[in-house]
Design a protein around this nucleic acid. Structure first.
Lengths: 294, 294, 294, 294
DNA sequence: TATGAATGAGGATTCATTCAT
DNA sequence: AATGAATGAATCCTCATTCAT
């Protein structure tokens, strides 16, 4: 990746932070990183970590894809969103008039509180008052930003999708080798951390919702397609570059994603003998045998 | 299978039907089969089909395992329930005073109505009034039989487990060859029919519930263990008899169940390119390659 | 009116009271009359007053028309309802199983509380909790009987119509002379008593609602037609019998009703110089001049 | 009416338009008339029509009475307002610093939006946000101009009264003959046009409000008195000049206003057989018979 | 002058559950 | 065994109003 590209990333990051209306110091605090590090990264002395990229995207409402490539729809390691409905409006539109950043943040805060509550207690157990309390505000305020609880919850689900995507783009864009990338991809998806367990919780719920409600299938399909494509692209690259064996990429993708989902369920439901480590081992062994062809 | 065994099955079937308080004619009608066929099966001229066995178990409140083996905890093709909480009370206890059958039936009717509603609309969307309406009765009546909505719903989930198990026992007890049995097992689990799609819907919901709520893990674990054991037993038999290749049975079971679950999700959520046929093909190909060792 | 007719009225009154599930003593108490008087009227020693007839109709859910004529749709002094939607179900259907009377009464109680509140505070200011409080019950109970506040309010309006009609039939059925009947009719409609002021309040509101909302026109039209017909019938009889002068009955009806309404508004809005007495005088003078032709 | 008077009208019109801060061209556009016509009327070549007078009054916040007579309280064809509360502040006060006109206009715009919404949806259904939307502004802005929704609504009602009065003064000031004026008066009040139907809708609502709420009676009485006086004055003039027959003016006024109101209700509630034409015919026939004495 | 954000005070409705019959 | 009536306890949503900017 050339220096020019890195330059651009810095420029866009600076731009996004500027639009947020926060100072660098404040912004660093919000990301939970050292202000010096942020400063260095913005001037070019230091690279952004994947986590920082995802954080900047999250806080400013842009995508990591845009930070890295200047476009939301760039197809790199992962599939771009097929339609705009699945992601937030393009970055240029927000801010420019004061207050927009604040507004965006309050909205984001509510969405994230809702997201966490869904993940922890389940979609149907989330109460408006709970979300409000988690944000230190009132139910009416939640309704000021979202017409309906359902709107909020769906928005929270969308947000979840965006976040997972951002995390992948941020975490994978520097990994060139397909095999490494595949392992990294899996590592990024394993329900190991609290955060990732919450994301898996959301996934399970989206599956259930999609099975019951045709309307939810759309949301599910849009996000699942990305995940599918991220895997498929890597498999294809590995196959074409000869790193991987010969196989039907689509079919292998279906098997791998199914296996990941199925193992994830076993971990999430606390089945005896199914741990994250076991999940990792199983997937590696399957990849080594069926993908690499060893 | 010797005639003696068949004799016993007939005897227990006759016994169970007698306890139901219905005439053979009525009972046949309820099963949706020809009275003549039922009569022949009960006198020995004809064998019960798997469907009929499951139906008799369902209607009379006994397990297929009991019908076939005289005991609920017989370990045959599948694992027996580890504790009594996972299944209905033993068959001997019910019905001895008149009306018990009717009561049992009303209760069963409510459970099945609840079950269907859960499967169709989702656990959290089931209302007592809805269940009552589906049964042509009142909310108060539902509460007469079940102290709490939650009790009813959990009971409905248990019922689901029992049914799946019965279906497996009934469908597999005649299949001797491990490979055939494995394929049959998968066939019995594919979300092909309406009924099975409903059962899958329930599964997805139980997974979600178990991921969110530790209490639900118990129910999930109990039923999943059976399913796991049913697969494992077959794999073990095939491995020991040399029909299958050499592999770690537990690990292979984990992989297979994970794959089945993952593929099931893809079908249930209506992912493009994931059909029941694709699911069957994928599983067969994996079995042929990894289990048979071809 | 022959004794036979009076016999029948007594019979039907006895029947209606019997169905209410209350004893004669209780019923008399509810009507607010002396039990002895009720008893005498039921045995034929005494005639029912108009007020009593209306009360019996109100409490038992039948119409005065039915009490007097055995049919709801009898056309006597007033027009019968054109469609069943405007009145309560036929008398035979209710009661017969115990509790029906009680239920009917609770429902009626709620309707009347709502009616009074509408009349006093206005349709849009009536709160479910208010109605509940007025009935000494809970909001949930109100909703048990009426799905929606709006349903309740519309029902209350219908009830108002029925009551006015009952009062007219009860008050006019003995008055044979058209002129006397016309004066009586007006007297029955004058906003003199508290009760009648409340009824006028409701009328004003129905007019407003009908002007704003096409759906309300139906309700208004149904009830206004009766009122119109009650006047028209009397005018027609008077004209045909030569008591009145010669005029276009329909046109005169329109003028009279319009004048009554307009004068009623002036009284109700407390215009200086517009009292009930003035209203009576004006109407009498118009009738004497334009209807009698003096 | 002498030229001097006409001169004065022109002068005051010019004055009022000047204060509005708009150019003649702009003002004409706002009135929806040809700028040439406005110009001619302002220079004396042409007379203002009644519509134009009312429009000028409306747009500039003065009364037609002031335009015609230089005083708000001139008693001409109609009664003057008894207290200042019933009309806008005197014209001299407003506009002197730039922007006052604009402010006045924004306020007027809000009032008229509120007025229309009341007329169309009913007093109790008007929401601040609705008014704001209709004005292309925000709820907060509405509250900047009016402390309370109720204040705004009451203001809108006052505005309604002023408008009706203006229209009458403008429409009647040239009609000398009492009979003609009476017919004209009725014509001006018939719910024939959209605008007039809206005004009637407001009337009905004011009646209802006045019947329910003593506070509203004041507003109602003030405006009704004018209407009463407008009729009474004309009747008196006609009686004194011998054009009309002999009658009690007050009593005849009461009857006529009551009849108009009652007929208006019948039209507004969409009663079958009650049209605007029927209303006109009925009123003419009553006037011919009872007022003219034919 | 204008307004985006926020919110307190309702207010209708839902629904599991109880209980007398 | 069954149920009609009743209700407490949520819970979502509305909306006028405030206030900092």
């Amino acid at each position: 990746m050339s220096d020019n590209v890195a330059d651009d990333v810095r420029g866009r990051a600076r731009e996004a932070i500027r639009r947020s209306g926060l100072s660098q110091r404040q912004f660093a605090a919000r990301l939970g990183i050292d202000p010096t590090k942020l400063s260095k990264s913005l001037t070019g002395t230091r690279r952004f970590t994947a986590l920082e990229l995802a954080g900047i995207a999250d806080e400013t409402g842009v995508t990591v894809n845009w930070l890295l490539n200047g476009r939301d729809d760039a197809e790199t390691v992962s599939a771009a969103p097929r339609d705009s409905s699945a992601v937030r409006p393009p970055p240029a539109s927000l801010a420019d008039h004061p207050g927009a950043a604040r507004e965006h943040n309050r909205k984001l805060q509510i969405i994230e509180a809702a997201w966490t509550l869904i993940a922890e207690h389940g979609y149907h157990s989330v109460r408006v008052a709970q979300v409000a309390r988690a944000c230190g505000t009132s139910s009416a305020t939640v309704h000021y930003h979202f017409p309906t609880l359902e709107h909020l919850l769906v928005e929270a689900l969308r947000h979840s999708v965006k976040q997972a995507f951002d995390r992948q783009v941020a975490g994978l864009h520097t990994v060139g080798d397909p095999y490494e990338r595949l392992l990294r991809l899996i590592e990024l998806q394993l329900p190991g951390s609290d955060r990732l367990r919450l994301e898996w919780s959301i996934w399970l719920q989206v599956w259930t919702a999609a099975a019951l409600n045709p309307e939810m299938r759309e949301l599910h399909a849009a996000s699942y397609r990305r995940w599918h494509e991220t895997i498929a692209r890597t498999l294809r690259e590995g196959k074409e570059s000869g790193v991987f064996g010969d196989f039907d990429v689509e079919e292998m993708t279906r098997r791998l994603t199914a296996l990941i989902d199925g193992l994830g369920i076993q971990v999430m439901t606390g089945m005896p003998g199914r741990s994250v480590d076991h999940m990792r081992d199983t997937l590696r062994s399957v990849i080594d045998r069926d993908v690499l062809g060893h």
